[in-house]
Design a protein around this nucleic acid. Structure first.
Length: 454
RNA sequence: GCCCCCUUCGUCUAGCCCGGUCAGGACACCUCGUUUUCACUGAGGUAACUGGGGUUCGAAUCCCCAAGGGGGCGCCA
């Protein structure tokens, strides 16, 4: 059996849309699952809308998501060039081939593909003009996702514009032929176009590839598919917000496909192993940022500590929560107690800022809550103070101090927690309190409690 | 207007191919618990087979129709 060759063929328009990313991902997964080749081809035939900076957006996002390509820009390959703008001679040659066979003809300066079938002229309601219809035989597609789909083209269509540039349908098919693409995995928005593509394959006398039309990603609410303007629609947004690329990729897999082993958050190696086109869903999926955040949080918490630190450190430096002088060991100590609680890297600076400055932010809400709930926080801290001044500075020692304070004043140990938490962190929640105190150290802890009392 | 695709909790989905489980899980939400309030975590809970016809002892599952949703119909990709 010949090797699988799939391609992702984006048009560089300056954005990398989440739907495009998912299409790329399914192609990539299929290539990796089958041991085939993943080809990146740049469809830049529309000169009006393309530029080198736009290309960079795509390449950067592809790399960020860990989708490496075997052939394409910057890596080369035997079927290049991989930019359609550099393949114009080929398109001219292929056009001539169709013209010589009588499959294409010139009209109004453009070239049209000639369909086979009886012709008649009718008024088209949608186009609001008279058109020549062709009673062509339906094209039959056995789609790997959707099954048998039958559709007939009913008009000749342009394959080369009067300005000399080929149109999408033509270059798409020519390149798929020349690059020996075996499987076309693309969005369902192309399903209706497929009959055009099959007509082209037929005209060339070439057996078409297998097709798999994957469902679209719909807006979270409201009608229609995700558009550039929707929140969460652009991959760069996730990069900026410090989402983990592996989590974004993981979530994208869940839109239109379900892992077979019952897990939702799982390593990419396992996804590759389980991925099958036949298991791709047929119905569109609505984007849900909350679930994506959940996947991100899950992934974040299970990250090896060193990896977590490598991600957190530059961001904390960037936000001036720490400077370069903070030792890896000290940072690791702090991160160790916060990682189990953390849900996003984006909010890490505010979540853990109090570890590194005396000038930490105090949450008014938490303070109000404190007074409302637990009586007199200052009184509690005065009761607690002598015990933690003397105790052994370990989790167990600090815990014993809290218990001792409770026993001495006929209270529950937890009565001291909220005041201590607020005094030392300015927050109402966060990492485990004993861990916070231990990591802050005795001097800092006592200093902050005394500062609070003043 | 024409053509194509789709239809299970609010959302993502399992089950459907090869009819028979209280229709299962996850996110979100609610309740309760945990060293109180918590961006951790644990236990519960609310919540769905779009509608109508068939076929069948029995239908989420098979067939038909309708409705709804999505997409396409360009000398855009």
């Amino acid at each position: 059996m010949s090797q699988v060759r799939v391609r992702f063929a984006p048009s560089p328009t300056g954005f990398f849309h989440i739907g495009s990313a998912r299409t790329a991902l399914f192609n990539w997964l299929y290539a990796r699952h089958t041991g085939g080749k993943f080809i990146l081809r740049i469809e830049d035939t529309d000169k009006e809308r393309n530029s080198p900076e736009f290309l960079k957006v795509i390449l950067d996002s592809m790399r960020w998501l860990g989708m490496d390509w075997d052939e394409g820009p910057e890596v080369g390959g035997n079927f290049g060039p991989y930019f359609q703008s550099q393949r114009t001679e080929l398109y001219q040659k292929k056009l001539k081939e169709l013209a010589d066979k009588g499959k294409a003809y010139e009209k109004d300066g453009a070239w049209w593909l000639r369909l086979e079938g009886a012709r008649s002229t009718v008024f088209d309601d949608h186009l609001k003009r008279e058109i020549e219809k062709v009673d062509a035989a339906p094209m039959v597609l056995n789609d790997l996702v959707r099954g048998r789909v039958e559709r007939a083209e009913d008009r000749d269509f342009v394959i080369f514009r009067s300005n000399g540039e080929p149109v999408f349908h033509f270059v798409n098919v020519v390149d798929d032929i020349e690059m020996q693409i075996t499987h076309v995995i693309r969005g369902e928005d192309h399903l209706s176009n497929t009959s055009k593509h099959l007509e082209l394959f037929k005209a060339f006398g070439v057996k078409p590839p297998e097709y798999a039309h994957i469902p679209l990603i719909l807006k979270t609410d409201g009608p229609g598919k995700m558009s550039k303007r929707d929140r969460g629609a652009l991959i760069e947004e996730y990069q900026q917000r410090h989402y983990l690329p592996s989590a974004v990729r993981n979530y994208l897999c869940l839109l239109g496909w379900t892992p077979t082993d019952g897990r939702e958050v799982l390593p990419i190696e396992d996804i590759i192993k389980q991925f099958e086109l036949s298991a791709v869903h047929q119905s569109n999926a609505r984007f849900d940022e909350r679930k994506m955040s959940h996947v991100n949080a899950q992934t974040l918490r299970t990250l090896p500590a060193a990896e977590f630190a490598a991600i957190a450190r530059p961001i904390l430096i960037q936000h001036r929560v720490i400077d370069e002088k903070v030792s890896p060991a000290r940072l690791a100590e702090v991160l160790a107690i916060i990682q189990e609680k953390v849900i996003s890297v984006e909010h890490l600076p505010e979540f853990m800022g109090f570890f590194f400055t005396e000038n930490f932010k105090k949450d008014d809400n938490a303070f109000a809550n404190l007074k409302k709930k637990g009586g007199d926080p200052a009184a509690r801290l005065r009761e607690l103070l002598p015990h933690i001044e003397a105790c052994e500075w370990t989790d167990a020692g600090i815990e014993a101090a809290f218990n001792a304070a409770a026993a001495a004043h006929q209270r529950k140990a937890t009565d001291f927690f909220a005041p201590a938490r607020f005094a030392t962190s300015g927050q109402g929640g966060g990492p485990h309190l004993l861990g916070i105190l231990r990591v802050l150290g005795r001097d800092t802890t006592l200093g902050r409690i005394k500062a609070f009392l003043n």
